[in-house]
Design a protein around this nucleic acid. Structure first.
Length: 556
RNA sequence: UGGGGAGUCGCCAAGUGGUAAGGCAACGGGUUUUGAUCCCGUCAUCCGUAGGUUCGAUCCCUACCUCCUCAGCCA
């Protein structure tokens, strides 16, 4: 009997867990999601969140949220808050309270003393430059620092004085004494504590020494009883150090670290440093700009938690480098919104049409369903009028072969209304089409015309009843698939100047009172979402385009 | 030219000594008052390359090739 839920694909981590459960090594698994609060979460983190929390759910285990807050200079409460919000929004709940690596500072300190007492750590006063020199290179062994031979007594004293603030920032470090000749650079006596007088978001000014990631992470995992510590591939080389620390300390728990490949997406970047640069340099409005690959940006854009979780499921987990096309992500939202978003009509690029034979009080309006497959979504009246807006793109003076939209002398179905014929085109002095004079076939409401077939259907809005709306159309943020592949070229040079287009469009009155973050499908156009922050129900309608509808005509 | 990883369809990704899952995309057809959705069908004689072991290898062995990664007092 397998523990694998049918909904989740097999992957190497699940295989390991299943073996561990089957062998009795673990009765319950405990995972953790360990972000550093130094930026907002992005789609790559979402993959990790879905993995860690998903595993815990599927195997009846637990998953902790633990902040790796060991570098006070870059961390903030704002980031920590946003991260918690994002995890919740994605649909996950961590086990118990939020954990902080800083909660373990005292224990970490005592373990460091244990290491010193065992002769496995020493205080060094080499400058950063010297340390780099002493470290050697990939092909040459490093050499020992003079401090490597300090006695336990001396090290104990020095380390205590480091904590007491007797030394200047950066003047001394505590190093693990492992092997300066190791072919693994991480084992060449890595620094495990440095002196930094920085205000910490949790511990304030209580400490002037801070533990390094490699030293902190494994111990934090062990203290929390983590069974499977999952991280990305670049930490593979750190695993021997992870194990070394735990093997040499009196901790009876030794979590196992497993690495999986990080997610790469075409036309976007997933580097917190670079995302921060986009924010700082004002290339975007903030971390939650709808063009950002951040969780909060995608949320604002209109992505749903379900769609992101589905995405994580589709891309899978492995150890091979992979680059996923954004089309996969888009496919996930379309699929989710297809069944969840009510349909409504909107005109993004309006062209005025005068229905010449519209007869007030006689020409009828129909009710329209909010969802073709879900009558429970309800319906509303879509009023027709003498003057209507249609999409400028739905009319062509010189229609190409296969054109199913409006053309001079041609007919088209007005969605939920009559069949419309274009009789006359009004142009301005420059020859630009500014208005269409059309007539409807009075006998086509709710039924097809007799003797001829009208294939095309277009959306429209009665001018009298349409509501003005600010519509934000987003395109990819970068013009090339891999903006940051070339180290010599600033990725900002590949910014897509047309990534945001704000247009004044029109929407059905039904949208008027929509709350922020309401999803809609604008028929024939795409999925849109009322802006989380700026949309004001009943006052200012602001919609963000989440993703366009698939368009097999546009491809031709 | 040190260490650690990875190479299976356009993109992800299972799999395993017994003759290549699935998803996305793509393509063909059907339904449709969204050129959407939905439905049906097609889509790797082949698993980086070359040898070897075997009745039989993508899975085992050998060599090679390619890509990623490591020299922060970042995580």
């Amino acid at each position: 009997m397998s523990n694998t839920p049918q909904s989740s694909a097999s992957n190497f981590i699940r295989s390991i867990i299943e073996v561990d459960i089957a062998s009795g090594k673990h009765a319950n698994i405990i995972t953790r999601f360990p972000p550093e609060p130094n930026g907002y979460l992005h789609i790559g983190h979402a993959k990790s969140i879905c993995l860690n929390f998903g595993l815990a759910q599927d195997y009846q285990g637990r998953c902790n949220l633990r902040f790796d807050d060991t570098n006070p200079e870059k961390e903030s409460q704002e980031y920590a808050r946003s991260i918690q919000d994002d995890v919740h929004w994605l649909g996950f709940q961590w086990d118990g309270e939020v954990r902080w690596a800083s909660d373990y500072f005292e224990q970490l300190y005592r373990f460091a003393i244990e290491l010193i007492e065992k002769g496995l750590a020493y205080v060094d006063d080499l400058t950063p430059e010297q340390m780099r020199e002493y470290r050697g290179t990939l092909t040459q062994a490093g050499k020992s620092s003079p401090s490597r031979e300090l006695s336990v007594i001396e090290n104990l004293d020095l380390f205590a004085r480091m904590r007491a603030g007797e030394f200047a920032d950066g003047s001394r470090v505590l190093r693990a004494k492992i092997d300066m000749a190791s072919s693994n650079m991480n084992l060449r006596d890595p620094v495990i504590y440095r002196i930094r007088r920085a205000h910490h978001i949790r511990t304030g000014d209580a400490w002037c020494i801070y533990p390094m990631y490699d030293y902190t992470h494994c111990i934090s995992d062990a203290l929390e009883g983590i069974t499977h510590s999952l991280c990305t591939l670049e930490f593979e080389d750190h695993r021997p150090l992870y194990d070394w620390v735990l093997d040499n300390l009196s901790i009876d728990c030794h979590p196992r670290q497993y690495e999986f490949s990080r997610l790469e997406l075409h036309y976007t970047i997933t580097s917190k440093r670079k995302l921060l640069q986009l924010v700082n340099d004002k290339h975007v409005s903030g971390w939650d700009d709808p063009r950002m690959p951040t969780v909060s940006g995608m949320r604002r854009r209109g992505y749903t938690p379900d769609s992101i979780r589905e995405f994580a499921k589709r891309i899978g987990v492995s150890k091979s480098n992979n680059t996923v096309d954004v089309g996969v992500l888009e496919g996930c939202v379309r699929e989710d919104l297809e069944m969840k978003a009510p349909r409504v009509m909107a005109v993004v690029n309006p062209l005025k049409v005068v229905v010449t034979n519209f007869i007030e009080g006689q020409t009828v309006s129909r009710m329209a369903s909010y969802h073709p497959q879900h009558p429970e979504f309800g319906e509303r009246l879509v009023p027709l009028g003498k003057e209507i807006w249609i999409e400028a793109d739905d009319f062509s003076e010189n229609p190409p072969v296969g054109w199913q939209r409006l053309a001079i002398g041609g007919e088209v179905r007005l969605r939920y209304s009559y069949v419309l014929r274009c009789d006359y085109v009004v142009k301005d002095a420059l020859g630009k089409v500014v208005e269409l004079r059309c007539s409807i076939d009075q006998d086509t409401l709710g039924k097809n015309p007799i003797g001829r077939k009208v294939k095309g259907v277009i959306h429209w809005l009665a001018i009298e009843h349409a509501l003005p709306a600010e519509i934000r159309l987003y395109d990819r943020l970068f013009t090339v698939p891999e903006p940051d592949v070339d180290k010599d070229v600033d990725f900002c040079t590949y910014l897509n100047q047309q990534s945001l287009q704000v247009v004044d469009g029109w929407v059905e009155a039904a949208v008027s009172e929509a709350a922020p973050e309401t999803h809609y499908q604008f028929e024939r156009i795409g999925y849109f979402c009322t802006d989380r922050y700026e949309h004001q129900p009943g006052k200012k309608i602001i919609l963000n385009r989440t993703v366009a509808l698939k368009d097999s005509w546009a491809k031709e």
